[in-house]
Design a protein around this nucleic acid. Structure first.
Lengths: 137, 137
DNA sequence: TGCTAAATCACCCGAAAGGATGAAGGAAAA
DNA sequence: TTTTCCTTCATCCTTTCGGGTGATTTAGCA
């Protein structure tokens, strides 16, 4: 949480500096004050959204951390879900905006926790344990 | 069907020969006639079971040939079932007493018919189409 | 009696998956 | 503050998959 506040403070400071510079240097003196206000508003909104998502993600993560899920982390459950839907590791990586290696690591840990040797076996066990969304089966 | 009768006839003939030899050579003269009868009975029973299974399999195959199953043959459905249960090609081959190459051929045709690119995708589609036994999902 | 489909098996080759291991940053908990 | 977990990414190496192609046997169908 300390890191979040650090980032937030830094961004605030940076914004202040930008404000001062643009104000005194009169670089944007011909830009109407309304547009300037809108830009500042959007930047703060972006920060707010980022902060909100970060905290929500954390809260959500803790809530979903269910012992019945065999210690699978939130991210692992996400990967498992896509896995069961027939996506390849590369496709999952693209969908989650991470590298192929990262997905392979997640998948390996999923196998360990589910005691599976293959992805098809992981799907089977995940179904039995209702770890993945019930589909037409 | 002609092949079945050929095999059946050959086995019958072989049995006759065995009977004659064992009888006239008196190799088993000290074996009680009851035991001999039991053995003969068991052999005929084995042949009967084999014949029955062969014919039932054929009949069953024709009955199960359902257009709703997308033209998947009986064997392909068997492989698909084991596939969805998390077995590797080698394990499926061992279970069905055929070679790995045979399973790979079946699996390839399954992919073609289900329009799948991976085995996980085949499982997903098979579930949607209820081609495989409904499990805990 | 040819034609067709199913089932079996083989070989080659490239792609995907999987195992082992290490590393590094962030966050929560002790 | 130290420890532990999560997430991210990497490299090396082996195994499994999957595509393409061709061949054989058997049985059913026209």
């Amino acid at each position: 949480m300390k890191k979040s506040w650090l980032v937030y403070g830094s961004l605030m400071g940076f914004l202040m500096i930008v404000l001062e510079v643009t104000h005194y240097k009169a670089v944007v003196k011909d830009i109407r004050i309304e547009i300037f206000g809108v830009v500042i508003g959007l930047m703060f909104m972006a920060m707010g959204i980022w902060l909100g998502m970060t905290w929500y993600k954390k809260k959500n993560n803790m809530e979903k951390y269910d012992p019945a899920k065999l210690g699978l982390s939130q991210r692992e459950l996400e990967v498992l879900e896509l896995l069961s839907q027939g996506y390849s590791n590369q496709e999952i990586a693209d969908k989650l905006f991470v590298s192929l290696n990262t997905i392979k690591t997640h998948v390996s840990k999923i196998y360990q926790k589910l005691n599976a040797k293959r992805r098809t076996q992981a799907i089977q066990k995940a179904r039995e344990l209702a770890l993945i969304a019930p589909s037409n089966g």
